[in-house]
Design a binder for these strands. Structure first.
Lengths: 326, 326
DNA sequence: GTGAAAGCGCTAACAC
DNA sequence: GTGTTAGCGCTTTCAC
């Protein structure tokens, strides 16, 4: 690998001048050309490691998400990447599995790699995030709240949960259950509170099922609901994958919406049928990503205003009404 | 941030000794303890940038995939990550969009970041891969062939294409079309050759449709096929997302397999119905990832044997036969 | 076994 | 506008 000294020697200038050319400082045109030619001839690529050691920062953004196999998060990642790319930053994707240990590890890595900033969908405790913020590294929370005074970009989960439930009520359903995610995850709690806001406190306790946030969780919960003595006539799932699981179970049981009402918070990924019968709350996944990236880039650029919270709107598409002809 | 000098001072030893303790060289037990205590008290985290600049390598693996929103590639990424994690390596995920320019850029970054190695699903030309291999950086190709003498882990695409097609023949279909990906992408070509092996050369030319590798590509191609004067009675799609698109169009047209036979190469992600009627070739996405990671880690560890090519098996699940009762 | 010192490739003062 | 020089934090000879 050619170094800056090789380029300097070939161009007949000092390494400092080469550095200046590369970083856009003022250099006389002819020397600049000399340097550029030499660099091209030697296929010179600046060593980012050395640059970073010296300048204590890099054009790297860490994005910590709980599940890379969930299309909601990959769409979000896409948003972050698009925005970062425009600004000349690269994105490092890290899978936390909602495991605070992994999350902490990646946060430490972000530090010891001198990354420019971190965007994360926080798993559980806030303590670990301090690993990053305490060292002055910009951190933006996305999709989930934290107790910390940092920038966040969110959806109003309670409103979303209520809207999904209300759509079912308006479609004529009366016994509406809720499949919620793990109680530990912020957001899922909020969404089921929204459901509660609409169904009221007299809904049976077992109409609220907690499950993991994946397809199998949705399956299990739906099976439980179907086995209930007073079976619900509709269900809200608080994320996309649990919605998939619930629909799978219904399909296997020969039940087709709107025979039983289904509202999904999130988009049904890659559905191979037209989900007209199903109410979907389309979460702005990609937009969450671009917004978070924009906020982070602002901070990296030196923005010092107090922490902001941006709440993005979700859009609802209504499913069929109860008992509608199919 | 505490440095190695701070730790050394606190422990009353030289920085060299601290480094030795951290890297497992032989140090007297008492000094080792002193160092460890000091490091803990100072919350010392080694600076990876400095370490890398000095030692010219890192515990970072770059994984270049064409589409982070395709579940096939995220499953593959999962495999890589699991294996890398075990070995103490971190994975940097990069989205190439099948764009050779982006691919080259990331390859350059892998170099200038002194990454330990690269795993990639190559987009188009081989020339760019040289950017990495020429500098002695280990590179493993996954899912797609290259013309270069490097490790690869693949599926036998021609065999897979033929198997999917043969399953449709055996299910009683006679006019089998093929929705193939972009001609430029290796693998897609192979899969359609496998289709050709089975349908023979007298299949109508317009039964082979090229489309982009995404859902909308599958939709377009399926629409074209349905509009054909001699409409096919079955279709093979050469990847998962195009399969989703094709099924969407069929569903909208009121056509349900096995009325028209469908074979998908890849898994139908998150299907909300039981896809019994559909033939699927289950590609070992995750296993491709773990295998590629294992090979790369071997190389990083100094393995110098000639380039290997590993071919993984795919498993086929048969759909319903033509005209089967539903 | 341990310390002193050089140096990885770059940037940023500081002189000129 | 340009060159000289120090130093980012670490690892690794080389002596002892």
């Amino acid at each position: 690998m050619a170094t800056i000294y090789d380029v300097a020697a070939r161009a007949g200038v000092s390494p400092a001048t080469v550095s200046r050319v590369l970083n856009g400082a003022t250099v006389s045109p002819e020397k600049a050309r000399l340097v550029r030619d030499a660099a091209a001839e030697l296929h010179y690529t600046p060593n980012r490691t050395a640059r970073r050691l010296r300048s204590q920062n890099s054009e790297l953004i860490a994005l910590l998400i709980p599940d890379i196999e969930n299309p909601f998060f990959t769409a979000l990642a896409r948003g972050v990447e698009d925005r970062a790319q425009q600004a000349g930053f690269s994105v490092v994707l890290c899978n936390t599995d909602d495991d605070p240990v992994k999350e902490t590890r990646y946060l430490d890595i972000a530090n010891s790699e001198d990354m420019a900033g971190v965007i994360l969908a926080p798993s559980a405790t806030d303590g670990d995030i301090r690993h990053a913020t305490d060292r002055g590294r910009p951190v933006v929370a996305v999709d989930r709240k934290t107790g910390l005074p940092i920038d966040s970009v969110l959806v109003d989960n309670r409103v979303v949960g209520a809207a999904a439930t209300r759509a079912l009520v308006e479609a004529g359903y009366e016994r509406i259950a809720c499949i919620a995610g793990p109680a530990a995850i912020e957001g899922t709690e909020e969404r089921s509170l929204g459901w509660r806001d609409v169904v009221g406190s007299n809904a049976p306790a077992n109409y609220l099922q907690h499950a993991n946030y994946r397809v199998d969780g949705g399956r299990e919960a739906m099976l439980t609901l179907l086995a209930l003595p007073e079976r619900p006539d509709a269900v809200v799932t608080t994320n996309n994958l649990m919605g998939v699981g619930a629909l799978q179970v219904l399909s296997e049981a020969g039940i087709t919406p709107p025979e039983l009402g289904v509202a999904v918070i999130g988009d049904l990924p890659f559905s191979t049928f037209s989900p007209d019968a199903i109410t979907q709350v389309h979460l702005p996944a990609r937009h969450l990503g671009t917004t978070a990236a924009t906020m982070l880039l602002d901070r990296i650029a030196g923005d010092r205003q107090p922490p902001r919270t941006v709440v993005l709107r979700a859009e609802l598409t209504r499913g069929a009404t109860r008992g509608a002809a199919r």
